[in-house]
């Protein structure tokens, strides 16, 4: 583990995930709630992409349990979906890191879609049939949020925001 303490320090990782959790605690309602991006998922996938040695399956599972409490769902629903998301990001990691923000977001769209579909499936099996397909709305907002996040980080760090892993 020869690694220099760089931008992806534990403090940053925990800080950004806490921020994501706080954002989810805001009193969202109505359309904003239906369209709310899944900040926790975006945080986990972002750090999996850039710091795979620190954030991976275990952290995704824990954060997923938090998200399950958050949404009043069955424990394990978000956890399993997030773990699958992490797997896919790890699988496509080297490829994703090559792209500019727009293409990266486009490539992440199917991953977000698959994660939501898994949520739908697990919720369906474990609790109730879903009411409508609003469960798929966050896919779009997740992608847009990712684009915004990566774009802002690019501007902030200059073009050299490469992964440090």
């Amino acid at each position: 583990m020869s690694r220099t303490q760089s931008s992806g320090s534990w403090r940053r990782i925990l800080g950004s995930l806490t921020l994501a959790l706080l954002l989810e605690q805001l009193p969202w309602s109505g359309w904003a709630l239906a369209l709310r991006p899944d900040f926790l998922l975006i945080g986990v996938l972002f750090w999996t992409l850039h710091q795979p040695a620190r954030v991976g399956f275990g952290s995704a599972f824990l954060v997923g349990l938090l998200a399950d409490f958050q949404n009043g769902g069955v424990f394990g629903q978000h956890a399993m979906a997030y773990v699958v998301g992490v797997y896919l990001v790890l699988f496509l990691r080297l490829r994703l890191l090559q792209f500019d923000p727009l293409r990266q977001a486009t490539q992440l769209f199917p991953i977000f879609l698959l994660v939501q579909l898994l949520l739908l499936l697990i919720g369906w099996l474990a609790a109730n049939p879903p009411s409508g397909l609003t469960v798929l709305l966050p896919v779009t907002s997740n992608t847009v949020m990712w684009l915004v996040l990566v774009g802002v980080l690019r501007l902030w760090h200059g073009k050299g925001m490469q992964d440090r892993a």
């Binding site: 399956f57 349990l65 424990f75 629903q77 956890a79």
Partner: peptide
């Protein structure tokens, strides 16, 4: 990674069932 994915998915299923 695949093995770890499967292990975590098993844990997840256990959670869902237990809950």
């Amino acid at each position: 990674a695949t093995a770890r994915l499967l292990i975590w998915l098993l844990v997840g299923v256990a959670c869902v069932v237990a809950d």
